[in-house]
């Protein structure tokens, strides 16, 4: 379970996150919706200790990560997969090396096992025969799939995805959304996804949260959120 309580963050004197309270159950998929600049990425970065909050704390599987040292955090993060908005694959490595990297760092698998694991995970995300390609040679959609493969390759039980559909056309957006949902359920991951894409969020989510100007203004299952009385929430879901 992931639990965020009373989280505040200001960057350069500007309030970015204010009084964030949030719980994500084991195995649940939560989508955090919000407009660009609402604070989604910054919130996600707090969830894995990439940033320190000014106030409040983040508890992951019973461990309060708020005050851990970077060294301890590195250990915690091994068990969390993170899909970056632009993929953030190493551009000096080909696909195979990118996927092998976490395995070489954190497992004792031999070369044969690593290559087998990479083949399997690429199959899971619907890619084949791209092992020798460099990230620049892949389309945006393929890059995201490879990045997703990298995020789950260690069988992490927690998966964070930052705007998985941004920059993709409608069909690829749907495909990657379905892929994330299926993968997450298959691997029984506790998953947090950020998005500004309402339609696909409904496809992915068990539960949704709406963030606006650094505050969570609605949290609930689809029906609850869609029938909210709050004018901003209604406005957001209208378009």
């Amino acid at each position: 379970m992931i639990k965020v309580s009373g989280l505040y963050k200001a960057i350069n004197g500007q309030d970015i996150l204010q009084d964030i309270n949030l719980e994500v159950e084991d195995g649940e998929i939560l989508v955090i919706l919000g407009q660009s600049g609402a604070g989604k990425s910054v919130l996600l970065q707090h969830l894995m200790g990439l940033r320190k909050p000014d106030k409040g704390n983040v508890v992951i599987s019973g461990v309060d990560i708020t005050n851990l040292s970077e060294r301890d955090l590195l250990r915690v993060r091994k068990n969390i997969g993170y899909l970056f908005q632009e993929g953030a694959l190493y551009d000096f490595m080909d696909v195979y090396e990118n996927l092998a990297f976490p395995l070489e760092e954190h497992t004792d698998l031999n070369e044969g096992q690593i290559s087998q694991r990479i083949k399997n995970v690429l199959q899971t995300v619907g890619l084949e025969g791209v092992e020798g390609k460099y990230p620049v040679e892949l389309s945006g959609g393929m890059r995201k799939r490879v990045a997703l493969a990298r995020a789950v390759i260690l069988n992490s039980k927690i998966l964070f995805c930052d705007e998985p559909t941004s920059g993709l056309d409608p069909i690829r957006s749907r495909d990657i959304s379905d892929l994330i949902r299926n993968l997450s359920k298959q691997l029984q991951c506790t998953t947090v996804v950020t998005s500004h894409d309402v339609a696909n969020s409904f496809r992915i989510a068990d539960r949704l949260a709406l963030i606006h100007e650094g505050r969570l203004i609605a949290v609930g299952i689809q029906g609850e959120i869609a029938s909210s009385k709050d004018p901003f929430v209604r406005q957001f879901f209208k378009n």
Binding site: L74, Q85, D91
Partner: peptide, 18 residues
Amino acid sequence: GSMSVNDQVLATRTMGVD
């Protein structure tokens, strides 16, 4: 620099590597 602005440095931290 380009790794920093493309989140590859941050990604390194998310993979548990310094």
